[in-house]
Design a protein around this nucleic acid. Sequence first.
DNA 1: CGGTATCCCTTGCGATACTG
DNA 2: CAGTATCGCAAGGGATACCG
Lengths: 224, 224
Amino acid sequence: MSKDYGQFCGLAKAASVLGERWALLVLRDLSLGPRRFGDLQKGLPGIPTTVLTTRLRELEEHGIIERQAPPLGRRGLVYAMTDHGRDLTPILDALGRWGARRMADPGTHDVMTSSSLAGALRSAYRPGVIPDEVTIRVAAGPVLAWARTTPDGVAVGAGIPDGPIDLTITTGPAMRHILAGTLSPSEALATGALAFDGSRELFDLFPRAFHVPLDPTIIQGEST
Amino acid sequence: MSKDYGQFCGLAKAASVLGERWALLVLRDLSLGPRRFGDLQKGLPGIPTTVLTTRLRELEEHGIIERQAPPLGRRGLVYAMTDHGRDLTPILDALGRWGARRMADPGTHDVMTSSSLAGALRSAYRPGVIPDEVTIRVAAGPVLAWARTTPDGVAVGAGIPDGPIDLTITTGPAMRHILAGTLSPSEALATGALAFDGSRELFDLFPRAFHVPLDPTIIQGEST
DNA sequence: CGGTATCCCTTGCGATACTG
DNA sequence: CAGTATCGCAAGGGATACCG
């Protein structure tokens, strides 16, 4: 059971569950779709199995996630968000945007995961820039994610999207500066920090449709 | 130094600081205004001095709070939010609303603090219901807070407000059900769970201007 | 009053090994 | 593949004592 703060306060109740180690990252991964135990473990490098087990149990006890029978013919269970858990999605996105403001470049031991990339795309999305329904694929080395714009927002996911792809962006950590607007797409193309395949028009819209500002107080190279 | 997750991810960075024990509650209190060490300690029942010291230092290192010279003639230092910290306020409110959805009645060991009450008011506020600038005082036993509506939102605080008071509400844990809309003001008046002093008209507007829904799945008496 | 310094105890975390 | 069992270690909780 997670630690309580002994206060009759919504924030205190939230903190007692979400403040546990790894909890927010487990939820980020599950916010992108149902996952099996092993998926989560692979997607969260460094998480001890015992901790993952404990977090999943606590989150289930609090009605934030639930175990489901797997989709059609697959074996094992999957963990999935409940409605109550899905209510957290915009908050996770806001927290991610806030944290990213001071995150310019990866630290020595920082890795990117498909879920973190997908989450970044979701939290970066600004409606109204891209009028059509399009599918964008982003590849940062082995890390793959996609975003599909819809009339009411954006759907994102880890891995490879179903259906046709309108734009593929291949990049690395430079993606952070694209999202920040501190590196223009054409510059990035010139230096080879980034490549694309598909609609040039869509490519040019990308930095306005997906944007997470960078705090001006952050200087290049520093990022805790 | 707070624990990192080794991921190049805004949410992971946020979680590494905000996930530390007591961090979110320290920030809730500071989001209501500058506080001295002792203020925080009194307002956060159960926090060990060592942990408060550590959290304050970490939050300062991350540029979320800062130490300031005290206002005019008082001695000692005060801790206050930086701009970066203030950016968290809407997120804290959203988290508080989310946590409060499953919080119907106080647990046996749950206390209310002036900061938690003030925070509840801020997160509950819905613009557009109260047209004027008014000051509302809420007393739940020894716990005092106030809210002043303004054209662009609401200002809240712990303790007693400056200036004239348009409405005083005296209540207890029943306040949660007023905010939820599961207890009508007139009912509460009849049972004595609540009393008010001041504008009746404003009193009747209150539940619409300050609202935090309660999850229907929660049954009376249960609240972890 | 605003902390720092210790001490002891308990808990949770992280790593590894192992079982259904 | 999906966890449980175990264990050493670091950190938090709580009390108390003490400095500026």
